[in-house]
Amino acid sequence: MLTINNITVDFGGVKAVDNVSFSFQDRELLGLIGPNGAGKTTLMKVITGTVKPTSGSVSLDKSNLNGKAPYLRIRAGIGISQQIVHPVNSMTVLENVTFAAGHSKTDQVFLSLFKTNRAIEKEEALNLLKMVEIEDVADEKPENLPLGYIKRLELARALALKPKLLLLDEPLAGLNQSEAERLSNTLLKLNQQGQNIILIEHNLTEVVRICQRLVVIDNGKKIGEGEPKTVMNNPVVRTAYLGRS
């Protein structure tokens, strides 16, 4: 459903992404991994349109996304939870997710004025907060919360958009191993229910456990792709990880 064609991103001499291609199959839970600075986040931003690739193209359901404004890509069915958290700090956790759940009420600027009811969206939001286990802070402002909470808030918010394809950039950051395991199980369950997910994660234990396929990048280049166990045994992948840390 999503195809990355020869994407290169050049940040003034630094090739953050270097001629990467891969495609995402329907109903997949795909892990995108690589050492720090590999170019994973940059690739996510190319998909959402906040970073313009130097060359190459991205297409969703066979329609080319190049030149399409980021908000239109989101409306076309991409939901993202970013590596660096951006909660709306002036709203409570529940309001953050409620707002996202109301995306169909806000897509027409003028008509949004005539819609006031938030009950359904609030309920949806509360269910999502329960799913990611942060309903206890529903009425708090995000700025006072630890990272693990905000990351899950952003996951819930991305899910509230009901995206065809969910992009998750390190959703397990800030969680302890048992929390990470539970959230991974939630992701796995969502995927089994049909949710398409691209998962960027440094917690390789969980990645290998839940993903069906991995794409590995290092220094902007794709260095491996395939079934998780096989990929992790690939010597090139092993040196990429071991050679750095």
Binding site: T48, H86, M91, T106, D107, V109, S112
Partner: peptide
């Protein structure tokens, strides 16, 4: 306006335009 979804969206835009964009807001 404050009670409407337009006001809700204004709040989000006022707080953080980039985040609003990634939530599909025009």
């Amino acid at each position: 306006i404050k009670r409407s979804w337009m006001g809700f969206t204004f709040d989000t835009v006022a707080d953080d335009e980039d985040t609003a964009t990634l939530l599909g807001v025009n």
